[in-house]
């Protein structure tokens, strides 16, 4: 989540206003031929990356047309007949699809409440440490799990909490029954949230720590002189300074309301059963890749993408209305 959430807010802004470029505004643009001769190496350097993005990002976006077709790999996109919204109609009347949607929304809402505040709290805690040495050490430790793969994280959880894991092992030694948290559908939502916290909460704190480091320290001094205690300084100085970042991350989070850790759920779906672990992404995977219902799965994927896009746009509007900067400047 964090790598995508740290999307820089001012990038699009400066794309809109090239006048903010370092060089002073030139009254007249140099002629095209001159610019081509001057800039062709830059164009050449940009081409491979943009080309890869076009091929592996834009073309698949266009490939979503198969959601409106009765696609078959034998006839291809050009040979497959268009069927309009038939796939969507089937999808909306499929109870399994709605199960997946409900599961996804339940899990993301749950994580918004129980995951989202933890990086903020962690950042505040780390920021209050006075010894830079200890702080660096703890930061190094808590960032680390972000760089582990989901397979690894789930394996570690399994070894600690699973039926043959350390917890059960210790419980059995004391005469109790072992318990298998990894396969219990009722507690699955707590399990996946705990996994996300373990993996990414430390890394998520990095962005709040950066925001905290830009707070003017004299504000705290002035507030302290005026008699504001520790908690009032937290409430009136620290938290307001974090507000833009929190709003930004909430917007991005809302755009991902239908997205949960894909690998995390694929890996555990068999262990806990689909009733608890089927989310939209796994639904698309099983319908499409496993069952070869290409058009149907593409329709479900497209539904997810479009809803996500609409949610981001709405959230950004709301943020602007509340006077925050949001993700981008102009809709």
């Amino acid at each position: 989540m964090s790598t995508r959430t740290a999307l820089p807010p001012q990038e699009t802004a400066d794309a809109d206003q090239p006048a903010a470029a370092p060089q002073p505004p030139v009254p007249r643009r140099p002629p095209l031929r001159y610019r081509l001769r001057r800039d062709w190496p830059l164009l050449l350097m940009t081409t491979p990356a943009v080309g890869l993005l076009v091929v592996f990002h834009y073309i698949p976006v266009l490939g979503n047309v198969i959601a409106f077709q009765d696609y078959s790999p034998w006839t291809g996109i050009r040979g497959s007949p268009f069927v309009g919204f038939a796939e969507f109609q089937t999808m909306f009347s499929d109870p399994y699809f709605w199960d997946a949607v409900v599961n996804t929304l339940t899990i993301t809402t749950f994580q918004l409440i129980f995951y989202f505040p933890i990086p903020i709290a962690l950042a505040l805690l780390l920021n209050s440490l006075l010894s830079p040495r200890i702080r660096m050490l703890i930061q190094a430790v808590v960032y680390l799990p972000h760089f582990f793969s989901w397979v690894l994280v789930i394996t570690l959880f399994q070894q600690m909490l699973g039926g043959a894991g350390l917890l059960s092992q210790v419980m059995r030694q004391y005469g109790a029954d072992g318990l298998n948290i990894m396969t219990n559908p009722d507690t699955f939502i707590f399990l996946v949230t705990a996994q996300s916290v373990w993996k990414d909460a430390g890394w998520g704190a990095i962005i709040f720590l950066a925001a905290l480091s830009t707070v003017d320290q004299t504000q705290y001094e002035a507030a302290a002189v005026d008699g504001a205690g520790r908690w009032r300084r937290l409430w009136h100085i620290t938290l307001p300074s974090l507000r833009p970042v929190i709003v930004l991350l909430l917007i991005l989070r809302l755009g991902e309301a239908l997205t949960v850790g894909f690998e995390q759920f694929i890996l555990q779906r068999d262990a806990v059963g689909w009733e608890a672990a089927e989310v939209l992404d796994t639904y698309v995977y099983y319908e499409g890749i496993v069952s070869s219902n290409w058009s149907y799965a593409a329709a479900a994927g497209l539904f997810k993408g479009v809803v996500g896009l609409i949610l981001v746009l709405i959230a950004n509007r709301v943020a602007h209305a509340l006077g925050e900067q949001g993700v981008y400047q102009r809709a």
């Binding site: 995508r4 999307l7 091929v55 592996f56 990002h57 834009y58 073309i59 698949p60 976006v61 266009l62 490939g63 979503n64 198969i66 790999p73 992404d281 698309v284 995977y285 499409g288 890749i289 290409w294 799965a297 593409a298 994927g301 497209l302 997810k304 993408g305 996500g308 896009l309 981001v312």
Partner: peptide, 13 residues
């Protein structure tokens, strides 16, 4: 950043 290409079209590509 705004558009996610989707699993199925990417796989087919």
């Amino acid at each position: 950043f705004l558009f996610v290409p989707g699993l199925i079209p990417t796989y087919l590509l």
